[in-house]
């Protein structure tokens, strides 16, 4: 057994070394400089203790960004589930061309973010985008809709993100669906259950744990999503209406040039996620114990 333990540690060593060296240092470094008024590149550094954290508690921009983040993560999560789960259920049925369709559905997840955002901004462009062209041709709207303007930019961002990330939901959910023993469905059918009741009483209980994982991962990942949000509006005029916490943290470090404050925001996000994860594990363990 001791020998096993030694071998185990030896096998783990490279990973631990990499993680320890390359992740722990940056994270600790962030926590450390969050206690200073540190300029992004000038040699200015003044100890402020928890001053930045106190400041953010009263900072309107912080709460705005937090709010945008909740809206963004919430909306994209719900829609990813709403689109992803039915798609997975569909792809779980046996029909011709299923493999092909599966490939097509997964396509958006493979595309580099920069290309995906570019594509959607092009489609949604108010003067020559396809979306407006179709809407006008169909008589659904009278004039072009400014999809990338103030009123619609959040909607556009959500649409783009859902398109980009729902395949993750499809894949994960589909995989679990495939492992449900067919006998369960057969038994339910014999008992005279219709499609809805089969879903309600067989599929849902079977997939509850995987749903739980999906919800957690996707909400964390959407809450910390930077590139899609940033590429959508950069720091331009409309960015005001979709500025989320990662974007705000980035701005504090890289454009306000207040690296200390940016680091504090990073730490705040990190703590939020640690807490969320801890709660998740607690609830998940209870669920597992119950079933």
């Amino acid at each position: 057994m001791r020998q096993n333990a030694v071998a185990g540690w030896l096998l783990l060593a490279p990973s631990l070394l990499l993680l320890g060296g390359l992740v722990v240092f940056p994270v600790l470094y962030n926590a450390w400089i969050s206690l200073f008024d540190k300029h992004a590149f000038l040699p200015v550094q003044r100890f402020v203790g928890l001053g930045h954290y106190v400041y953010f508690a009263h900072d309107e921009e912080f709460w705005n960004s937090f709010g945008h983040g909740l809206v963004y993560a919430g909306a994209t999560l719900v829609l990813q589930l709403a689109v992803g789960i039915p798609t997975a259920l569909l792809l779980n049925e046996g029909f011709r061309g299923r493999t092909l369709l599966r490939g097509v559905v997964l396509f958006p997840y493979v595309i580099p973010t920069i290309v995906a955002v570019m594509l959607w901004k092009w489609l949604l462009n108010d003067s020559y985008g396809l979306v407006n062209h179709l809407l006008i041709a169909a008589g659904a709207v009278r004039g072009p809709v400014a999809w990338l303007g103030k009123d619609w930019i959040m909607t556009s961002l959500v649409i783009t993100s859902v398109w980009q990330f729902f395949p993750f939901v499809v894949v994960t959910y589909l995989a679990r669906l495939q492992t449900i023993p067919p006998e369960l469905y057969e038994a339910a059918t014999v008992d005279g259950a219709g499609a809805w009741r089969r879903f309600r009483h067989v599929t849902l209980p079977q997939t509850r744990s995987v749903l739980f994982v999906i919800v957690l991962l996707r909400s964390i990942w959407m809450f910390t999503k930077f590139d899609t949000v940033w590429l959508m509006a950069g720091d331009g005029g409309v960015s005001r209406y979709i500025r989320t916490l990662p974007v705000y943290a980035y701005a504090r470090s890289f454009t306000y040039l207040q690296a200390g404050m940016g680091a504090a925001l990073a730490v705040i996000m990190f703590v939020m996620l640690i807490v969320a994860t801890a709660v998740y594990f607690r609830v998940f363990e209870r669920e597992e114990a119950m079933s």
Partner: peptide, 13 residues
């Protein structure tokens, strides 16, 4: 830093 802060941009928009 003033440019980077978006303070003026937010006001204008």
């Amino acid at each position: 830093e003033l440019d980077g802060s978006s303070i003026v941009a937010d006001m204008v928009v």
